[in-house]
Write a protein that binds this DNA or RNA. Structure first.
Lengths: 208, 208
DNA sequence: TATAAATTGTGAAGTAATTCACTATTCTGC
DNA sequence: GCAGAATAGTGAATTACTTCACAATTTATA
């Protein structure tokens, strides 16, 4: 599946997916591209072009089948492939993410948390144990985990990232504001919460 | 300032900003576009084009002054304009965000939290009080707050959003997976954590 | 001082993304 | 069954974004 879906498209697919979930809850079977487009403030032909990538044809004058759309979006985005991950950094954000059960239904299993604070080690969060960071390399290898969710303070981010890379972690979902230096074999996804907000704020609040 | 900076550009500006913070900590005064470009895996002329929007000329053979760049990015993204906001929904994520002090240094003040659970009302989180959601309209008006950070469960999201809109909230930073229906006068920024991850996961982990 | 190397700034070229405009199809109501 | 309306699908046009290529400048060095 998922053959080179551009980032913008996959971002829209996740929004479409949310709408499908809502329509299913409301017991609505079909949905049209203008309905979706209006909801998201985009062009309806854009929606149709995106859906074309899903190989999920609609019916003229009717629209698309909600259930089928949801399934093919999930297939394309890989919900079915369960992926295991560690949360590295058991501060407020790390703990909140550990408690965020939606991850699971989207195909992401948090297996454990890590921290360097001895006070936190061995605590349980949402049925997941917090381990000392020194245990990570061994556990990563034994469990075959190569995804880490990084939620340490900014000033430790690079150092911890280096440690993760040495532990054969290949994917880092970076919730810190640091821009990580990594070798080409390691992929980083920057969540950058404040950056995200600033875009929002900049556009309309500061405005002019 | 901030005259129609495209979203892609402002996203890059936040990444540049992080790098500037790091360089300042490391005591480095100047930085060149190839240095930044290599760090982010983008083209160096892209960096220069972005900086041109900042009205912050560099010097040939030397590069840009780190301090000046940081300042003009902050000016352009509006860090200086303090903005007040409420967190609506005092679950794990809401509490984690309330404790996330970086918001402050980026110009966002969380004044209070809200929830409908009587057990949570009147608790203090990071020196911010949790109020019952029914108090929101009055407080929003008295304090002149029109930004809400929405962290309620998905199934309540639309209903709470409607309530916020009736309380004259104009900007909703939406951390729920719901796609909110709002009038054109209200702006929504979807954080969409899982969507964000799926883009990351889809691209490289699922592969093909 | 002359030469070489590094860097900015930028117009032009090239890509990618979005919107437009239209055709073909299907459904609804008369 | 027919007329009208809504919709999918899609090539073309447009717009936005990125990369290329290179002149102009500055610094370091011999």
């Amino acid at each position: 599946m998922s053959k080179n879906i551009p980032e913008k498209v996959s971002n829209r697919l996740t929004l479409y997916h949310s709408i499908m979930v809502e329509y299913i809850e409301d017991g609505i079977d079909t949905i049209s591209s203008p309905q979706i487009a209006q909801r998201l403030g985009i062009d309806d032909s854009q929606v149709r072009k995106d859906f074309k990538l899903l190989n999920n044809p609609g019916k003229c004058r009717v629209g698309y089948l909600v259930k089928d759309l949801k399934d093919s979006i999930e297939k394309t985005l890989g919900f079915a492939h369960a992926k295991d991950a560690f949360i590295v950094g058991s501060g407020h954000l790390g703990l909140a993410l550990a408690k965020y059960d939606s991850f699971n239904s989207y195909g992401l299993n948090i297996l454990a948390l890590f921290d360097n604070d001895p006070q936190k080690v061995d605590l349980q969060v949402n049925n997941k144990q917090i381990f000392h960071i020194s245990k990570l390399p061994n556990l990563a290898q034994r469990l075959g985990v190569d995804i880490a969710i990084l939620t340490v303070p900014r000033k430790n981010a690079q150092q911890v990232a280096d440690f993760l890379i040495n532990s054969n972690i290949k994917y880092i979902w970076n919730f810190t504001p640091a821009v990580l230096k990594v070798p080409p074999t390691v992929k980083v996804w920057n969540e950058n919460l404040m950056g995200s907000f600033l875009q929002f704020a900049c556009k309309d609040i500061i405005g002019d």
